[in-house]
């Protein structure tokens, strides 16, 4: 009971802090904090989505950035066509670009989910280190695909002229955009929270712990895992759509394998197999980068060993530390 009280306290304090962050940043005269916080929220969505397959499903993917980047490119490409006034596809049914978030964000989610379905369908036929490597291979394919896609900037990437239009909201305003990111994260976490505790979530956790028994019980495990992989891809696509808006720029760098590595780091650092963990991990990593960068441009010199230390000493991450001893972090 003490543990759950502590958990609840974390939720309340965290929630209140996040909700009040823009006015607090205004008071502290640090408006750039809002934009950093938006970035953290966006990466948190991507990290939570990765944790669905990694922490709950025990599928170690080193290619999650592919779905993140794909979502960003969907938004970027649609905005590019809307600005240039060039139809995306001609022919019997011309498709034009759009700057409307209500169109391009769901499309980003759908495209990423479909991509994850295809990649997952092939990758899930392998396991262990081969799964790690094949997801990496597919992500690299997509990286090079966008890297050589000259129509959309190739390796230079693609700049957006403005953020998307979202039902009359001014996303160009950092505070408004922040609340949109916060809302997106809250919605996604609610969905995940229901998901992992549902029958489907139990099946996924069962597959992670003992897939052989799951099959013997009569579960077609491949299909359940694939659906989980697709849902995770969809989440990363949403994060991608948001990051494209935040930076008003998309580039192949979003899909690079080191980005996938960073997402893994966030999940582990924060505490995998939990939903808050990845959010904390994103915050710690991005804040840490930012803080270390104030003192030294070589912040990676400290981050690297820190990461090794975390791996060697604890598997419960920051969230586990906050909750204290005597629990499994769940």
């Amino acid at each position: 009971m003490k543990l759950s009280a502590r958990k609840r306290l974390l939720w309340y304090v965290g929630g209140a802090l996040l909700a009040l962050l823009p006015p607090l940043a205004g008071l502290a005269d640090e408006p750039f904090m809002v934009s950093l916080a938006s970035r953290i929220l966006i990466y948190a969505i991507a990290a939570v989505s990765l944790d669905l397959i990694l922490g709950f499903g025990a599928m170690v993917s080193l290619g999650h950035a592919a779905f993140f980047g794909a979502g960003a490119y969907v938004v970027g490409i649609l905005a590019f066509h809307a600005f240039e006034g060039v139809p995306l596809a001609s022919g019997p049914i011309p498709v034009s670009g759009t700057n409307n978030a209500l169109v391009s964000w769901p499309l980003a989610v759908i495209v990423s989910a479909l991509l994850a379905t295809v990649i997952g369908a092939l990758s899930l036929r392998t396991s262990g280190i081969h799964f790690i490597m094949i997801t990496l291979a597919f992500a690299q394919m997509l990286f090079y695909f966008f890297d050589s896609l000259e129509a959309y900037g190739g390796d230079d990437g693609l700049s957006l002229w403005s953020r998307n239009d979202l039902a009359g909201l001014d996303l160009g305003d950092d505070t408004t955009f922040y609340y949109v990111c916060l809302g997106s994260l809250a919605m996604f976490m609610l969905i995940c929270q229901r998901l992992v505790n549902s029958r489907f979530g139990m099946v996924i956790r069962g597959c992670a712990q003992n897939e052989r028994r799951m099959r013997a019980l009569g579960f077609p495990t491949y299909r359940y895992k694939l659906l989980c992989f697709a849902i995770a891809g969809a989440g990363a696509g949403l994060a991608g759509a948001l990051i494209a808006n935040q930076t008003e720029y998309v580039s192949p760098g979003l899909l690079h394998w080191t980005r996938s590595g960073e997402l893994l780091v966030m999940v582990i650092l924060g505490g995998m197999g939990t939903l808050i963990g990845p959010v904390l991990g994103a915050a710690v990593l991005l804040l840490g980068e930012d803080l270390l960068a104030i003192f030294t441009e070589h912040w990676q010199l400290y981050l690297g060993p820190l990461l090794i230390l975390v791996v060697l000493t604890t598997r419960r991450g920051v969230y586990g530390l906050l909750l204290g001893r005597g629990n499994d972090g769940g």
């Binding site: 229901r194 505790n197 029958r199 489907f200 099946v203 069962g206 019980l217 659906l227």
Partner: peptide, 23 residues
Amino acid sequence: SENLALAVQPRLGHSYRFWRRAD
């Protein structure tokens, strides 16, 4: 209990149920 709840599921049809708490 959770072990058994999983074992019971296949008999009750598919487990593509995403919202209700299984417990």
